[in-house]
Structure formats: C-alpha cells, structure tokens
Simulated assay, not measured.
Amino acid sequence: MRSGNPALKDSTFLDLGSGTIVRGDRGVMTLNGAVNKTAFLLVLTLAAALYPWSMYFADPGSATVGALAIGGAVGGLVVALVTVFKKAWSPVTAPLYAVLEGLFIGGISASFEARFPGIVMQAVALTFGTLGALLLAYRSGLIRATENFKLGVFAATGAIALLYLVNIGMRLFGFEGMGFIHESGTVGILFSLAVVVVAALNLVLDFDFIEQGVEAGAPKYMEWYAAFGLLVTLVWLYLEILRLLSKLQSRD
C-alpha cells in the first residue's frame, strides 16, 4: 500500500512494533466514518480560513493576517508531524491541523484574490471538481492504483518535494533559486501543471489506501487519521492550482 502522501504510507495501518494490524477496542474504521470526518475537517478548514480572509479585506495592510498565515503554516507542519508519529492522537490533532491550515490558506487566498479577483473561487471549484472526478473514476475502475501506478506517483511526488527543498535551500544561502518554479513563463506554467497532475493523482492513492485500511479492520481512530491524510493532499492540490491560475492570469 504505497502512497505519495507522507501521512499515508505502507506502515500507517500497522503496529510499528510487531508489523501486524492493530484493532481498536471501540470498533473498526469504516468508509462512511472516514468520509464524514473528512467533511468535518473541510468545514473546520473553511471556517478558520474565513477569519484571516475577512480581516484582510477589512484592512489589507494588517500585519495580523500575515502573522496568522505564518503561524498557521508552521503550526500546521508541527501538528502534522505529531499526527504522523502519534496516530492515536488524530481525533484531536486532525481538527487542530484543519484549523491551522485554514488560517494559512485564508491569508494566502486573500492575497491572491486581491491581485486576481475571482481566482480563489476558480481554484476551489477546480480542486473539488478534481476530487469528484477522480473519486468517480476510481470507484468505477477507470483508474486503478496498480503497483506501477503507485510507484510512479510516489517517485514523482518525492522528486517535486526534493526540488522545492533545494529551491528553498538555495534562497536561504543567497542564490536566486529555480526561477521557473515561481515565474509565469511557459516553463513555469508547464511545471505547475505537472505538479497539479501529480498532486491530483495522489488522491487516487489516498482513496486506495483508505479502502484497504477499511478492509483490514483498522482501529476506529484511523478514520480521523485517514481524513487528515486526505486533507493534506487536498490542501496541496488547492495551493498548486492557485499557483497555476495566478501564473496564467499574470500573462493576460
């Protein structure tokens, strides 16, 4: 069960000590449970995003919005790492992650919306449209998460992550970095398009992984962890679509 999502990897549903499935004392993971908790996390993310969003448009020069976005990004990363290593805490940490990511997304989205009016609704529509289309394709068997498919998406995701890390490192040491990552030229747009495709394909792996977790009878709290993992992918997909749309609109 390989997934490009770092939150959903081969050992997610396994006990790290014995390598065997751990079944909870309070029931097992169900598909409906995972879906309901994913919806709940999305609502939390949206509700949290509205706060910095409204604050930005009430006072575009407010430093608080930037602080909330940075705090949400850093806090979200910390909580995500805690969740990955302490899966049993996910009923608490997953909602907290959703709130923190909402603060981050709200601030970032407001700044993009101010520059390109209407871009946020387009990005949201494309994100959920992609989610629905890929879920339908997966459930109908049109797309199958074969081992080769998983390996390819996993490798592509790792390559993108490495590229981003190298770019950040170069900027920290005073180098210009890889301009095509941020520029709106043809190469930059093609790069962003490729990243969007890879992020979208990670959804297929997440669907497959969650389904296998349900079949394996994972503990009930893993519904929260599965929802958290899916939210990680959706946030990444949304941000990459937002970046791609901004590049396209800046060329007009």
Score class of each variant (00 low, 15 high):
137 A>G: 06
104 F>T: 05
97 Y>T: 11
68 L>E: 11
142 L>C: 00
143 I>D: 00
152 G>Y: 15
68 L>S: 07
110 A>F: 07
107 G>F: 12
89 W>S: 04
100 L>Q: 08
61 G>I: 11
132 G>N: 03
72 G>A: 11
61 G>F: 10
128 F>G: 03
102 G>A: 04
136 L>K: 05
131 L>T: 05
96 L>I: 15
65 V>A: 05
62 S>I: 12
102 G>R: 10
83 T>S: 15
153 V>E: 14
94 A>F: 12
148 N>H: 04
141 G>T: 07
150 K>F: 02
134 L>H: 10
106 G>H: 10
76 G>I: 01
104 F>D: 00
130 T>N: 04
134 L>F: 15
93 T>S: 14
116 F>H: 07
155 A>L: 14
96 L>E: 08
66 G>A: 11
106 G>R: 12
135 L>H: 04
83 T>H: 11
61 G>M: 11
103 L>T: 07
149 F>S: 03
74 V>D: 03
143 I>Y: 06
69 A>I: 08
146 T>I: 02
97 Y>W: 15
132 G>F: 13
130 T>L: 12
116 F>K: 01
122 Q>Y: 06
126 L>G: 00
135 L>W: 13
151 L>Q: 14
63 A>H: 09
97 Y>D: 12
82 V>I: 15
142 L>A: 12
102 G>F: 07
76 G>R: 03
80 A>L: 14
63 A>T: 13
56 Y>N: 00
124 V>L: 15
69 A>Y: 08
116 F>Q: 02
147 E>W: 00
128 F>Q: 04
72 G>L: 14
91 P>T: 08
61 G>C: 09
151 L>W: 14
99 V>E: 07
99 V>T: 08
73 A>D: 02
72 G>N: 13
132 G>W: 06
108 I>Q: 03
126 L>N: 00
133 A>F: 12
115 R>V: 03
90 S>V: 05
61 G>H: 11
95 P>S: 09
